[in-house]
Amino acid sequence: MSDEKTEPATPKKRKKAREDGQVARSADLVSSVVLLGLFVGTPASLPQIGSTLTSFFMKCFAVMPTKAGPEKLGEMAGDLFRNIGQLTMTPMLTAMGLGVAVNILQVGLSYTPKLLEAKGSRIDPLQGFKRLFTPRAFLEIFKGLIKVALVAYAGWDYLSKHAEDCMRLVLTSPTQIAGEVGKMTHELGMKMVGTLFTIAVLDYAWQRYQHEKSMKMTKQEVKDEMRDAEGNPEIRQRIRQRQREFSRRRMMSEVPKATVVITNPTHFAVALVYKPGQPGAPRVIAKGQDRIALRIREIARKNHVPVLENPPLARALFAQAELGDEIPADLYRAVAEVLALLWRMGSVPLSPQPLTTTAFPTEPQSSESQSSTETESETH
């Protein structure tokens, strides 16, 4: 089951296949659109082309008695080809533009220099002979025979329905014959090219289906590609380790700015900063456990930052507060008591208001809780 190609192709595989020239494209669609453009655009120029040819032959008949030399005849022929070229330029350019547009619609703007590289296998007669007898080659031959048969049938069907019209042309004048033959030729061509266009559309749908089928991947191939895109696991682990070390060093550099460090005393340490008079509650600027907690305590003592042991508060702050965040509202009271103790000890600057839970922003309290808070404030 793991070897079955059930997963759609990833963008990386599609890009590589496109660079190698592996795209869904139908050459018959391009040729049929070009022929349709010619058959649609050429009839508008046919009357002018006919008058140009008539004028050329009249000039030829006029100069024949004069025994004009090759120079004169060459000049007349040059004028003829130049005039016809000018008349057919528009339908030719239109057909070429349609061919380019169809190619772009099929595969987009794509440049594949790999297909231009010289490879010995491409000119090796033995390799070429082997390619003639592959299942794909036989399938292409079979498809070509079917296309020829369907286009030929479309032409035969048209001629069989207009056989009587062709017979009646014998009884008409030469000018009428030319007009009718031109009209029937145009209708015959349009029917055959229309059949070819229908076949080409179906062929393009088949080519696209086959291309998508060949591009599918197994689950293991998708996993391998994702692993390659993400890089070596050891390198990723090393990058994450470096990121953690950088974050830890940055956190340790904030410890000297702390107002107090609350410890477990050995397993947890949380550093808080609080500036009285400024809006907001105390903020966590560093926290850690075990060796990191020990390092936080060492830096704090080295920089004369108060270190207080309060195991329940240390555990609650470590679990509920993230770095850079303000302390949770349910811990306001406990932290306020710690700060009040430090204020009485002279370890923090004098606060412009009593250090209680009302010193931090909280949600509106009920009248009973508010009165009890005011009582506690007066007590402090």
Rank of each mutant, 00 (worst) to 15 (best):
L171K: 11
T66M: 10
A77P: 03
L105M: 13
G97C: 11
G144P: 00
G99S: 12
L169E: 04
G85Q: 09
K143N: 02
F61I: 13
M64S: 07
A137H: 05
L116K: 06
G97Y: 13
L98A: 13
T54H: 13
V102C: 05
S121F: 00
L139I: 13
A163M: 08
Y153T: 11
I146N: 02
T88F: 15
G74M: 13
G78Q: 08
K59P: 02
G99P: 08
R168M: 05
L139F: 09
T54K: 12
T66A: 12
K147T: 03
L150D: 00
N103L: 11
Q86P: 01
F142V: 03
L116V: 11
P135H: 07
P113K: 12
E164H: 13
K59V: 05
T112M: 10
S55N: 12
T134A: 00
F81D: 04
L53A: 10
A95G: 12
L139C: 03
R82Q: 11
F57R: 14
L116W: 04
Y111A: 15
R136M: 07
R122H: 03
K67W: 12
T90C: 09
N103T: 09
G50H: 10
M58H: 12
T54M: 11
Q86G: 10
T54F: 09
N83H: 13
C60Y: 09
M64H: 09
S51R: 15
L139W: 10
G108N: 11
A62S: 09
P91Q: 14
K119F: 02
A101F: 15
T90V: 14
I146P: 01
V100I: 15
K72V: 15
A77C: 08
M76C: 06
S160L: 02
S110C: 06
Q106R: 15
P65H: 07
L105K: 10
A77V: 10
D157P: 02
D157N: 14
F56D: 03
C60Q: 14
A149F: 10
R131E: 01
T112L: 05
A118I: 09
Y158L: 08
Y153C: 05
L87N: 05
A149Y: 01
R136K: 15
A77H: 06
K147M: 05
L53D: 03
C166L: 15
A163Q: 07
L87R: 11
L171E: 08
M89G: 06
I141T: 04
F138L: 14
N83P: 04
A62E: 14
P65L: 06
A68K: 10
M76I: 11
G69E: 15
